[in-house]
Design a protein around this nucleic acid. Structure first.
Lengths: 311, 311
DNA sequence: GGACATTCATAAATTTTACTTATAAGTACA
DNA sequence: TGTACTTATAAGTAAAATTTATGAATGTCC
């Protein structure tokens, strides 16, 4: 563990400047300082990073690979310094706009909004429902500060931190007299899905695809979990709902909820924000408050044998 | 840029040990050394990271946030050191197993396999076709060393580097007398899709969904782009094919390829490998060789107005 | 082909930083 | 109130990074 940050900085400056003196100037050090630092780095790593015979100097293949990794380190380092400077602002006040996906919002928002207001009276919290796609777009242009959504998402400018894992369950028109739902128990002819745009719709389809039942005609209609359940009740058939939607159900409805057989499908719910957000402290208050609400077992990834929702 | 690597190490050791002497011991330094280093870090960042009044000591809220970021830095740093130690092995020999998705393999593999063999005669290259899902699984258990596939993928243990961006085009039974395909030109009643398991199938559906045409019955059948085109030719209708599939087409077929109107759907093709792969140098040879084959305009993300394939 | 410019390496001196030992101060608990 | 434990401070030392000055190598231009 000998490599120094300064060395990495000098090295990367050199890789772009391709000239020791110039790179040294950019780093505000003398040319020998930079020269020796890089030599030391080569010694420490025991690798030749620079081809000094060519003119202008070039990186060796190994040098290229080290440079790529060095850049990642400095990126993270810059983030640390930005974070530190953001944290200088001690006031825990201001506006915080949080977007939540519609299949989660009705269940999580009411639970934490009161607790939150009590804990952080000086933060003006604005919550809005929106689809993942739209949320990501808004976060990129800083129209919203943070989001609570299903992950994974892969968007270089957005970072996220998993909060909890939520099981999917089957809600049916009539009581199912089984402890677990097996593939053959699913009535694909009468499976109600969410309408376009919900990420959970994709997950519902995925659950069915994974069970190799795609030839059926899947009907979709509902714009919310609540209306999904209503349609299921009024028109028969079954649907898939997330765990938290079962918490407030009547005993009558609860009796018609059946878990899947393992591997249980789950979704990962995370707090996301822009990589360069300036409101990290405010966003942190959201994370903390939610964490206090969620039962412990939901925070552990391995509670369930997961179905992977990777594309 | 004052923060030192050692300071981060000491700080993280302290966050887990919650005891200066113990943390110092773990870091192989004296207790005052660690104590002073952390004090200096607090000075540098101008933040109070540790609540020294409590017993045992605790992190302040800010300290928690800095610790999380510090961990990311050390993670990347460890990766640098692992990379450096892997690079010590100068032999560019051995076996390299590369998995390629089936909708890409037939077009890219023949092109680069000869060039590759000439450049790296001592590497035994094993290429196999597989679906994204299966490839990711195999990479996680080191059954395959690297992959060429469509990204983004979001899998913590897998890292990838974009190679190029490939446009999707429409291939039709009869020549379309238009310069660009508009949503209303797509004949959804006769759109041929790939069978389950291909990531490109998802992308095809996405292209259609984005154009709000989901009520139609989509038929799917083919196991490869080649058979997709054959079915389209023999049974009528149209299909969607990737750009590289058009390169080797007969003039007759080429005439029946039509681009989409902007935003053009594209897929991002990347080289992926396990975060802790020990064959980074070998994998790098793949990246380089492909890069030499691919025309420049395909390497630029902004050549196309992209359609985002985020879940 | 020799003078000049440019670029990187080396050497010695200096400053800065990090570390160690020894010890003091603070705290928790019996 | 003392004892054990933990953290902070101080002084001295070793290590390092950096500076200035200069040397060596390479390329360029007339």
């Amino acid at each position: 563990m000998n490599v120094q940050f300064a060395q990495l900085r000098y090295f990367l400056a050199l890789t772009t400047a391709k000239n020791y003196s110039l790179a040294a100037e950019q780093c505000n050090v003398s040319q020998p300082a930079l020269s020796m630092a890089i030599r030391k780095m080569e010694d420490d790593l025991d690798l030749i990073l620079i081809d000094r015979t060519s003119n202008p100097i070039t990186l060796t293949e190994k040098g290229e690979m080290i440079a790529a990794q060095a850049m990642r380190i400095l990126d993270e380092m810059q983030l640390l310094e930005k974070l530190a400077s953001d944290l200088h602002d001690d006031r825990l006040t201001g506006q915080l706009k949080v977007s939540v996906i519609p299949t989660l919002a009705p269940y999580i928002v009411p639970q934490f909004i009161q607790k939150y207001a009590a804990s952080y009276p000086d933060i003006e919290l604005i919550i809005e429902e929106d689809t993942t796609k739209s949320i990501l777009q808004k976060m990129k242009v800083s129209e919203t500060d943070a989001a609570i959504l299903a992950t994974p998402i892969d968007e270089k400018s957005i970072v996220y931190q998993p909060l909890f894992y939520e099981e999917f369950l089957v809600f049916s028109h009539e009581k199912i007299d089984k402890k677990y739902i097996l593939p053959e128990d699913i009535d694909f002819q009468h499976l109600w899905l969410l309408e376009e745009g919900h990420c959970m719709r994709q997950q519902m389809i995925k659950i069915c695809e994974l069970r190799n039942q795609t030839k059926s005609q899947i009907r979709y209609n509902a714009g919310s979990i609540e209306s999904l359940m209503n349609i299921t009740e009024s028109s028969g058939g079954m649907t898939i709902i997330p765990e938290m939607a079962t918490w407030g159900l009547s005993e009558d409805r609860k009796a018609r909820v059946t878990p899947f057989y393992e591997p249980t499908p789950v979704r990962e719910i995370s707090v996301a924000h822009h990589r360069f957000s300036t409101k990290l402290r405010l966003i942190n208050t959201i994370t903390h408050t939610i964490s206090e609400i969620i039962p412990q077992y939901m925070k552990i990834k391995d509670t369930y044998q997961r179905i992977d929702f990777q594309t």
